[in-house]
Amino acid sequence: MTVSSISRKWISFGAIFVMIAGWRIAAAIIKQPLILPTPEETIIQLRHLVVTVDFWLHLWATLRRGLTGFGLSLIAGIVIGMLAGRDSKAEAFFRPFIILVRSTPVVSLIVLALIWLKRDSVAIFVTFLIAFPIVVQNVIEGVHNFDPELQQMLMMYRVKTKRVFTHFYLPSLAPFLAAGISSGLGIIWKVLVAAEVLAYPALGIGTQLDTARVYLQTDKVFAWTVVVMVIGLLFDYGLDLLLKKPFRVWKGATE
């Protein structure tokens, strides 16, 4: 680690401190926890929440929806991305669909899902549609980056198709999939929770957020918000670290 990256880190920590201090000062001035609770009140509320069984049930319900929706978009994204990446006609065909999904307002997607689907599936469906364009775009880019010289080598040596898939396609796609997964899993939670607020499934962070709003438990709204932020950050940075590791080996060093 270089000196400048250490000092940059401290600047970022300082900025976080300034944000929290600003929040604390604003809360002290307003003096109305119903409008703006203090950071301490938020932490106390969080501590109350995490010891309840319900907290984990709601958390799990939301995580499950997110991972299901994302898993589906991953499968569809790989299949369609491979097709579109290898054949420019297929890409021309799929491109308008991808643009359609990407440019539809999120809230319209949620409202339409509310009309078409059952409460529990709304968030899954919306997550799928949000993540799909990200995954597909990354896979297409990955396929465009396939090394033609390696492909020719595999053909010359008559390597079987299934092995070309596992030993060439997947590893070639891996860095692009990793990028798609960590950025996708970083952003879906915001949208997913919004969908839950509107769909109101029996279990879910969104339902809890809205219930807290209705009962004017603003500290609870803040507490759940922190939870959603932490989920997003954990997936984004955590996966980034986790998924980058294997690629470092390919770029140097020994087994």
């Binding site: 010289e149 390696l150 080598m153 030993h167 060439f168 590893p171 891996a174 294997p246 080996v249 390919w250 770029k251």
Partner: peptide, 9 residues
């Protein structure tokens, strides 16, 4: 080939 063309992974 002119290049080794080994799979990096």
């Amino acid at each position: 080939f002119q290049e080794p063309r080994l799979l990096p992974w």
